[in-house]
Amino acid sequence: MFGFKNRGEGRICNECVRIKNAKGNLKRAYGLTFGDIAQLLQDQDNACATCLAPFSQVDPDNFRVGDANVDHCHARGHHRGLLCMDCNIAPGKVKDNADTLSRMIDYLTA
């Protein structure tokens, strides 16, 4: 079913390589495990923390984050939750400045 890669330690299943890389990337970038992702999904009702759009491609049991993005604070380095791509981009566009976001809300509701 899955192909194999020849590595120095022998042949390794491509799916096993994908899972190992996914686990390592999540741990290295955010200090999270797929168990942590599953808990965040449960806490957020499997939806974006800000716009509440449901995630459709996330499967922590199969080591896939899919359309959920781990939102993190660049200044303090901690993660805040799971966001859709649009909501994940928005804080970065205003440089995580709450005053700018507040003025944008005032502008939109005027």
Rank of each mutant, 00 (worst) to 15 (best):
H79V: 11
A68L: 02
V70Y: 05
N97M: 02
L26Q: 06
L108A: 10
E9S: 09
V17K: 11
V58E: 05
N6H: 07
R7D: 00
D99K: 14
G24R: 05
H79G: 00
L82I: 04
P54W: 03
G3D: 10
N62E: 12
R28F: 11
K27E: 10
N97H: 08
R103Y: 13
C84E: 06
F2K: 12
V58C: 13
D106F: 00
H72G: 00
T109G: 01
L83N: 05
P54K: 13
R18F: 15
P91G: 05
K23G: 03
G77W: 10
K27S: 12
Y107R: 05
E9N: 14
I105S: 02
I105W: 00
A22H: 11
K27A: 06
K95C: 01
N6R: 13
V70I: 12
G31V: 00
A29M: 14
G35V: 11
T100C: 10
C87L: 05
L52Q: 15
L41C: 07
A75F: 03
A38S: 07
G92M: 04
R80C: 09
F55H: 11
K93T: 01
K95E: 03
C84M: 13
C51R: 14
L52E: 07
P91C: 02
M85V: 15
N69W: 12
V17H: 07
R7G: 05
M104G: 04
A49R: 14
R11P: 03
G66M: 12
T33M: 09
E9L: 11
I89S: 06
R11M: 14
I37Q: 13
T109S: 04
V70Q: 03
A110F: 01
I37N: 06
K5N: 12
I19Q: 14
G10W: 10
H72T: 03
R80S: 00
L26W: 11
A75Q: 03
T33R: 11
T50R: 11
C48T: 08
G35W: 14
D36H: 15
E9M: 07
G31R: 12
N21I: 14
N69E: 10
D96N: 09
G35K: 08
H74N: 03
